[in-house]
Computed example of a mutant assay.
Amino acid sequence: MITFQIERRSGVATYMQIVLQTKQALRLGVLVPGDKLPTAKEVVQTAAINPHTVLKAYRELEREGLVELQPGRGTFVRRGLGTPDATSDAPLRAELTAWLRKAEEAGLDAEDVTALFDACRAEVYTAAGSATRTGPKQH
């Protein structure tokens, strides 16, 4: 089961942090269709947030078709966001992990890495290029 980590000083609304963390778990295959999300009460106990915030996040995920709220039963994942073959990401994940270790050894902290990543991502995924691309870029 997923445990939400709320960053109070991040500048991102709490409900949106829940939405984004759920989407990340779906992309990484941590959550798969049929999995049950924690109840609002469980999230309130672990993250010390308002239950309405949790419900707002779950309603947003439901609106996007990612989860289904089943009264009396809970909130369940309807569909994932990962690739059909999650093992195809393994080599990239290993390379990225190695790169992150090098960045840490070089003295970069998490915020430095995020800024560098965002700058590089902007270079590679331009608005026009990434919006229309349907598969891996051919070289």
Score class of each variant (00 low, 15 high):
I2F: 09
G129A: 13
G135C: 01
P84A: 12
M16D: 03
E62I: 01
V30T: 12
A40W: 02
D85N: 11
P91V: 02
V44T: 09
R79G: 07
K23F: 06
V124F: 06
E68A: 11
Q21R: 06
R101P: 02
V44A: 06
T87I: 01
D112Q: 04
L100V: 06
E7V: 08
V44Q: 09
R101W: 10
R9M: 10
S130E: 09
A115I: 11
F117R: 14
R79Q: 15
A103N: 01
A13L: 14
T134K: 12
Y15R: 15
N50S: 13
A110T: 10
Q17H: 04
K36Q: 10
K36P: 03
E7T: 06
D85F: 14
E104I: 15
T75N: 11
D112M: 06
A106S: 13
V12D: 02
P33F: 07
G65I: 09
E95G: 04
Q70G: 00
T53Q: 13
E7W: 03
A86Q: 14
A57F: 07
P38T: 01
D85G: 00
K137A: 13
V113S: 07
R59D: 14
E64R: 11
A110P: 00
T22H: 05
V67T: 08
E123H: 07
A57I: 09
R79I: 05
D112H: 15
M16A: 03
R63V: 00
T87R: 14
G135H: 15
A119T: 08
R78I: 07
R59F: 07
D89A: 15
T3A: 05
L66E: 04
P38L: 07
Q21I: 05
E60F: 10
L81W: 07
K137S: 11
T134Y: 04
